[in-house]
Amino acid sequence: MSAFVTVKGLTCVFDVSKPWLNRVLERRGKAFLTAVSDVDFQVEERTTYALVGESGSGKSTIGRMLVGLLRPSDGDVEIEGINLAREEDPAKVASVRAKIQMIFQDPYASLNPRWRVRDIITEPVLTQGGDLEGLAEKLLQQVGLHPSDAGKFPHEFSGGQRQRICIARALASQPRLIVCDEPTSALDVSVQAQVLNLMSDLKDELGLTYLLITHDLTVVRHMADRIGVLYLGRLVEEADPHSLFETPKHPYTQMLLDAAPRVDGFGREVPPPQGEIPDPINPPSGCTFHPRCPIATDICRRERPATRKVGNALVACHLAE
């Protein structure tokens, strides 16, 4: 197996300063929000890598940097050996970009209501000048819709069907990697099952690689081959699903797993996690999880933990064992 995607030291800092005049009047400096901080991971070809974490942990920001919607402030994204930020040959960059597509959470907002399904699906190919004849019909069939649906408008479809249309559009340019940002979060369990099954089938049939972004741990466990857990823009733990769910190493991963409701958790009483995610503009010193961590000691307040191997996992924690 070879790494299809290699992410190294990936960092994204947003300038969230107020306008210049306000800063002068209020005597404030510039403010920066580090949404993603020094993240490393690799995605093997034909596997699903899942990024989990709570709101604001930087999942979507990583996804957007991968597909090129956002420029990293620092670090590298390498896809099939081509470094997207440093590669000089624009043709090479374009050919890599064409192999990556993204699908979003909201199947309602991401489809233009005035376009017919055929035009929505073939749009990515249109800009690349490919062959459009019968393409929409073929893709619709591939995602389990009817070829005649090509002539309809998005409002004529249910949420699950719209997400299928989004998937068909993502498939149009024959991508190798699809970044799926909360693909089923807006859907019912019954519709979610259809979309997840479709994603698995397409992965097998077309040899796709997925970066799956979600906060739903049950979906992650069902789909992922490898999982990265993010907290405040940092990757705190990475492992295969079995190790992560059976023997979580990082106290944050343990907290997340304990807090997640379980379908077989009848009458389960666990003390809920303490505290909230801190303000990302002024994150805590050292390990950013230390204010909520039950085992934090002095060193956790002082030093950012390096990532190290503990059992089958990579963990950024001073104390994990």
């Binding site: 249910s158 099952a193 069902h222 699903p241």
Partner: peptide, 22 residues
Amino acid sequence: GLMASTPLAAQKQRRLHQIPGA
């Protein structure tokens, strides 16, 4: 059908059950 289409944390099913139609 609803319960069967819920991914279960405890077991790794290959495919999820789908309730046909809508």
